[in-house]
């Protein structure tokens, strides 16, 4: 009846202290991301304005409605600064809607929908159909270790084309790609932030730490 999510304990593997990570807070489950990042030791800013980008070492774009995030980002002058940050090498992790925002090409977007781009991929929005087709499953993701990743797909996108500059990290049994990385960018179709799965965020924070050192 009452489903309490059992949070996996953050493992001891080092996430450097003192990293300042933003979570784009225009719409969606940004508080869940902020919570995971804080538990992993990052200092977290909720970001809604372009001037809030400057002090960040990394950024997470959460799940939500990609069309709404796109509109609000453009309305409030955040889209161009975000594109500049991506070009400048800011590490960014996007889940679901966030993955769509980071894709160079969006298929089945709403009329006029734009993405920020950065990942050399084509993403199909809402690729599984309506909410009755949303599901949870376990994924084998060697880059994160032996234990499978429990993944929740909610009206989720899939990566339909992985371009030469991007690397697929995870696929479903039917071969469709659901997690990618490219340099400092990371994207997943699913939502580690709502399942107590910390490994993606830790993996991301390691990218952030590496970028800070450079």
């Amino acid at each position: 009846m009452t489903i309490l999510s059992v949070r996996a304990r953050p493992a001891e593997t080092a996430v450097p202290a003192g990293l300042r990570v933003g979570v784009l807070a225009l719409q969606g489950d940004f508080r869940e991301h902020a919570q995971v990042l804080r538990e992993l030791g990052a200092s977290v800013d909720l970001v809604r304005r372009s001037e809030e980008l400057a002090p960040l070492d990394g950024l997470v774009i959460p799940g939500g409605e990609s069309s709404v995030m796109d509109k609000l980002a453009r309305t409030f002058g955040l889209a161009e600064p975000l594109r500049a940050a991506i070009r400048g090498g800011l590490p960014i992790y996007g889940t679901c809607a966030g993955l769509i925002m980071l894709a160079d090409t969006v298929l089945d977007g709403i009329t006029g929908q734009q993405s920020l781009g950065g990942l050399d991929i084509a993403v199909r929005r809402n690729a599984f159909g309506s909410q009755t087709a949303s599901f949870e499953t376990d994924l084998d993701i060697p880059a994160l270790g032996k234990q499978p990743v429990h993944a929740v797909f909610i009206r989720a996108p899939v990566v339909e084309t992985v371009g030469p500059r991007a690397t697929a990290l995870a696929t479903l049994d039917d071969g469709r790609c659901v997690a990618v990385e490219q340099g400092n960018l990371l994207g997943t179709s699913f939502h580690p932030e709502i399942t107590g799965e910390y490994r993606f965020h830790r993996y991301f924070l390691q990218k952030v730490a590496a970028a800070v050192r450079r």
């Binding site: 489950d29 009206r155 709502i194």
Partner: peptide, 14 residues
């Protein structure tokens, strides 16, 4: 339950 409540989470702030 997680899939159902998950959609609600994604609608937040909307």
């Amino acid at each position: 339950s997680r899939v159902k409540r998950g959609l609600s989470e994604m609608l937040k702030g909307g």
